[in-house]
Design a protein around this nucleic acid. Structure first.
Length: 482
RNA sequence: GGCGGUAUCGUCUAGCCCGGUAAGGACAUAGCCCUCUCAAGGCUAAGACACGGGUUCAAAUCCCGUUACCGCUACCA
């Protein structure tokens, strides 16, 4: 039975790197019909942020990563908050002290600081000097004057098999006597993760590769407790464009920001799955079901990968293009409301919005592109693209636009064919190419030099508005161009 | 410093285990086609086996060394 957990620490906004790890865990669990467990590692009271957990959970939900056990859903191994499992850690910590595998230590943080600096100055690894190791201090996990440290073997080697990288070994002498229980009674990560993974019957520890160095220490703790360790899978990291660990300074890295920027969860899911994993053929666009059936450990890469925002945008565009106009409208609507485009005096009936969706669909990479590329379907252009003005707003164009406004006004039917016929006829009469007329109209109605086919655009924007905008542009030209 | 991990186009990657490919795909870039513009689409171009030694008829692939990059080195996770 595959049981994997995602164990975030609620210290801040959920980072894409962590979320990608969660996604791999989830895919692995779903592929093997196993369980995906969410466990909250809230043992650091200093960095704890109460709002972080909500952000993490909504990030997971946004992507569709549902958990079988954990906060809000419970489970057979509750509680899933480490802060609620203190007695459990204390119990096993006492056991370790009794068996001689751990010891109480009353060294002050000041002293620890001092020896660390000394050793650093002498070019030595900044390890604890094991001052209390053999003092046999009597205390209790709850005592705030002491911590519990693990008695690391002084020599020998500890090895473990990483499912991706093979055997990895460490010299025991390089391990510090790490703290298991802090003076505040909370366990450190190293201890809590071992106890919980074992007690919760985790089959595979899937976590980022930055944990490789501590895996050896964890193995030793498992041994001391007489437990068999789960399998280890250390996932490659995600890097920023400068190849350092992806972080805030690389721009949008919190999962919530992608949502705000108009990225589809489906696209994000697909994109993230391909960051560090490959289906081995050239398939790139895959839905959740395909991903579940194809994902497995052997496709996971060992090298870290750079997060390429451009490729995400491309993939998002792929997903946008695959939607029906109605589906696109549904996704776009919240943004329209946010931008104040859907109000009483603006046409926001679904039929209209669907037409806009259809016209704009293949021009959008992210939803927020709509704000610059399609605003004219909702609000009057207040300025005209300067390059377009220079190219298309010649003095004589003012008359053309007025004339066009009149002719459009008398159109029997406001539709694409009629608009096109009328426009081309006019160009012929003026003895110019159709483009010479089309471009000024586009600029007058949309303010832009780019967009959907002009006649489709005109049909959608509607008779009244088009005519008003043509006249308005004509006046603008008279006032500004000579 | 110590310990560990990693190394194929700018980026994501296939190929490596089981030596023989014109080293394949995608994003981005450039050009062309399509065209009322922008997209989308189609075609084309440019672009990589970190380096040095072996082994072999033959090495991206196997062996050794070097280099570079990244991570860890807390009473943080």
């Amino acid at each position: 039975m595959v049981r994997v957990r995602f164990a975030p620490s609620p210290t801040g906004l959920p980072h894409v790197g962590n979320i990608r790890t969660a996604l791999f865990c989830w895919l692995f669990a779903r592929h093997h019909n196993g369980s995906f467990i969410l466990r909250v590692e809230d043992t650091d009271r200093e960095r704890y942020r109460p709002e972080a957990l909500d952000a993490i959970m909504s990030g997971l939900r946004w992507l569709g990563l549902d958990w079988d056990e954990g906060p809000q859903v419970g489970g057979d191994y509750a509680p899933y908050f480490q802060s609620q499992r203190l007695e459990i850690y204390h119990k096993y910590a006492r056991k370790l002290v009794e068996s001689g595998s751990a010891y109480y230590c009353n060294c002050s943080p000041e002293r620890l600081d001092k020896i660390r600096n000394q050793r650093l100055q002498n070019g030595l690894p900044p390890m604890y000097d094991r001052n209390c190791r053999d003092k046999k201090i009597e205390s209790d996990p709850t005592d705030t004057d002491t911590v519990i440290r693990f008695k690391m073997p002084l020599f020998g080697k500890t090895c473990f098999t990483d499912e991706l990288r093979g055997e990895i070994c460490f010299e025991n002498s390089t391990f510090d006597d790490i703290v298991l229980i802090k003076s505040d009674g909370y366990p450190t990560y190293h201890f809590a993760v071992v106890v919980d993974d074992y007690l919760m019957k985790i089959s595979h520890i899937m976590r980022a590769e930055e944990w490789i160095p501590s895996a050896g220490k964890h193995i030793l703790i498992y041994d001391a407790l007489g437990w068999e360790a789960p399998k280890f899978v250390h996932l490659p990291m995600i890097l920023g464009p400068d190849r350092s660990k992806l972080s805030k300074r690389h721009g949008a890295t919190a999962i919530t920001e992608f949502e705000q920027q108009g990225i589809l969860p489906e696209a994000m899911f697909n994109f993230l799955s391909l960051l560090g994993w490959s289906p081995k053929d050239d398939t790139e666009i895959m839905n959740k079901e395909e991903l579940i059936s194809r994902f497995d450990i052997d496709g996971i890469n060992t090298a870290a990968s750079v997060f390429d925002f451009d490729k995400l945008r491309w993939m998002n565009g792929e997903y946008i293009r695959r939607m029906t106009p109605k589906q696109l409208t549904a996704r776009l609507k919240p943004y329209y409301e946010k931008w104040g485009w859907c109000t009483a005096d603006n046409p926001c009936d679904d039929e209209y919005l669907d037409k806009v969706s259809q016209a704009m669909q293949e021009r959008l990479k992210v939803f927020t592109d709509m704000k610059e590329l399609g605003y004219y379907f909702f609000t009057e252009p207040t300025e005209y693209d300067p390059k377009g003005v220079k190219k298309n707003f010649k003095p004589e164009v003012a008359d053309w636009l007025n004339e066009l406004a009149n002719r459009f006004d008398s159109l029997s039917e406001w539709d694409k064919p009629n608009l096109e016929q009328q426009t081309r006829d006019f160009a012929n009469e003026m003895d110019v190419g159709a483009g010479k007329v089309i471009h000024p109209i586009r600029l007058a109605v949309s303010g832009l030099r780019m967009g959907p086919g002009l006649f489709e655009l005109l049909e959608i924007v509607g008779k009244e508005k088009v005519i008003a905008r043509l006249k308005r542009a004509a006046n603008w030209i008279r006032e500004n161009i000579n």
